[in-house]
């Protein structure tokens, strides 16, 4: 008699537990779904970058320096592995990529140095390059704007300044919080 009375209670408790477990599972699934969608709209987006030709500005910068900055920049950006693709200026593939940033580099200051002077005096003859680097979206919004320097102070040829500069630009881009940030998310292209 007692067992027949307790049966509905047991059934109710079992039903409540089942409903609770089912609900909690569904809730967890929803949270995971939200989380994954959040990830895909944020840092999960793999951006590509197109490196524009170096703008010498008003300065009379040698073509060899412009080429060296450009080529070193492509190499260093590839090394960072932050971008899906690193494209060259004028590459026709750029039009097919939806998530594309354009890297513009303008030379702001250039001090031509001398390797011989550096070797003889140690304290003078440094080659110094200062550029303004801008990461721009397709619609012209500036995502990153930094002034970066590349110098050769003691050892190495004058062209080494271009290598140091490219490495510094890549480092700045890698360390900056632009990727996955709210700022960039606002500029993410609508497909």
């Amino acid at each position: 008699m007692t067992t027949s009375k307790s049966n509905p209670w047991i059934f109710c408790v079992a039903a409540t537990v089942t409903i609770a477990v089912a609900l909690s599972g569904r809730l967890a699934g929803q949270t995971a779904a939200v989380k994954s969608s959040g990830e895909s709209s944020g840092s999960g987006t793999q951006w590509s970058v197109q490196v524009e030709w170096i703008d010498p500005g008003d300065l009379d910068l040698a073509h060899s320096f412009q080429v060296a900055i450009y080529e070193n920049l492509l190499e260093e950006l590839n090394k960072t592995k932050r971008f899906k693709q690193v494209l060259r200026a004028g590459d026709s593939k750029a039009s097919e990529l939806p998530d594309l940033l354009i890297l513009k580099t303008t030379v702001v200051k250039y001090t031509p140095g001398s390797e011989t002077q550096r070797a003889v005096t140690t304290v003078s003859g440094a080659t110094k390059l200062t550029v303004q680097s801008q990461l721009i979206t397709r619609d012209g919004k500036i995502v990153l704007d930094r002034t970066v320097q590349g110098n050769v102070l003691f050892f190495g040829s004058n062209l080494r300044a271009t290598h140091n500069l490219a490495r510094n630009i890549a480092k700045v881009i890698k360390q900056s919080e632009w990727l996955g940030s709210e700022r960039l998310a606002r500029y993410s292209p609508v497909i």
């Binding site: 030709w53 073509h63 060899s64 450009y70 080529e71 060259r88 200026a89 026709s92 593939k93 062209l159």
Partner: peptide, 15 residues
């Protein structure tokens, strides 16, 4: 210094 383009139109520089 040479400036040349590849088959995709991408600009290269060689020194």
């Amino acid at each position: 210094t040479l400036e040349y383009v590849d088959s995709n139109g991408g600009v290269h520089g060689a020194l």
